[in-house]
């Protein structure tokens, strides 16, 4: 398998943890809430998902449990940030640290154990194509994530719910004045974001690398947060951002195995460097930012 084939075949799966978490955060931020606790929510989802599979519960139960703990942490966040209108940055960081701490605690006795991932489902015909064939052989979660991406894109573009979420994110006071229950809608968005972060963590620990190691989320939550901004709150851009990041992390592996004369530390930092550079370039388009940016992002709102 050549390097390029390896990258093409693996990038969708590599992108999925970022994509799931970022899609959830996209909905949260579009509604005007900034949840910085993504990393911790993913970590706890990963730990719980791994434990459920290891103890014989299967992957369906694992994803459900991971989604639930994500929602649990999201509710802690919502209680403080929406209910008590505390500073969203501080609460998000605190909930994130809580999630990471809990993941270390519950995962302590499972350290370095492994499980079996999920089988790949192939598109008949397409998956036999040369070079690109690997792209059409993916596990079920990857396919579901692609469907979720399309669904969220369509929601923001065509549905009334998408319109309402954008409205409360832009101007919550006006949305309230015309009769929307801003806090309830924001709560719904935060809960959705929590569930997606839980799924993202479960995917990372039970499918993508089916083993448990403390700290295995390794900054993926932060990258997902960056992707939302780098994608200027547009679903399509976030998808391509996740894909780019997934492809780059695989590319750095390929470069290492092919023995490039570049320090491996530099190669593994490459995806982050590229993300920073691309983020800087893309977000310099003020017009796009103004039209798609979320005006009330992170500001507490209450009657």
């Amino acid at each position: 398998m050549s390097g390029i084939e390896f990258i093409l075949a693996g990038m969708l799966a590599a992108a999925t943890p970022f994509l799931l978490a970022a899609l959830g955060e996209l909905v949260v931020e579009r509604a005007g809430v900034l949840n910085l606790g993504l990393e911790g929510m993913m970590a706890l989802g990963a730990a719980i998902g791994f434990i459920v599979v290891y103890e014989g519960g299967g992957h369906v139960a694992a994803f459900l449990a991971a989604g639930l703990v994500g929602v649990g942490l999201a509710l802690v966040f919502a209680g403080l940030a929406l209910g008590l209108r505390a500073n969203q940055v501080a609460v998000g960081l605190a909930v994130g640290i809580l999630g990471q701490g809990l993941s270390s605690l519950v995962g302590n006795s499972y350290e370095s154990l492994t499980i079996t991932g999920l089988p790949k489902l192939a598109f008949p015909g397409l998956s036999d194509l040369p070079v690109v064939g690997g792209m059409f052989s993916q596990d079920i979660i990857v396919w579901l994530s692609l469907i979720a991406t399309a669904a969220i894109w369509a929601m923001f573009r065509y549905s009334r719910l998408g319109l309402i979420l954008r409205a409360i994110g832009e101007n919550p006071a006006a949305a309230r004045a015309i009769g929307y229950r801003v806090t309830a809608l924001r709560l719904g968005a935060v809960v959705f974001g929590g569930a997606m972060a839980g799924f993202a963590g479960a995917y990372a620990a039970t499918v993508y690398t089916p083993l448990w190691a403390d700290g295995m989320i390794a900054g993926r939550g932060w990258i997902a947060l960056a992707l939302v901004v780098f994608g200027i709150w547009l679903t399509g851009r976030i998808f391509f951002g996740a894909l780019l990041f997934g492809a780059l992390s695989l590319a750095s592996l390929v470069a290492q195995t092919e023995g490039w004369a570049v320090p491996s530390q530099l190669l593994s930092s490459l995806p982050y460097i590229v993300t920073i550079v691309v983020l800087g370039i893309i977000t310099s388009n003020k017009r796009l930012l103004k039209v798609n940016g979320v005006a009330s992002l992170g500001e507490p709102f209450g009657p």
Partner: peptide, 16 residues
Amino acid sequence: FSLFETLTVVENISLI
């Protein structure tokens, strides 16, 4: 005004 600037006129109105 309680209008949403990033939405179109018809989108604003369809919120109500």
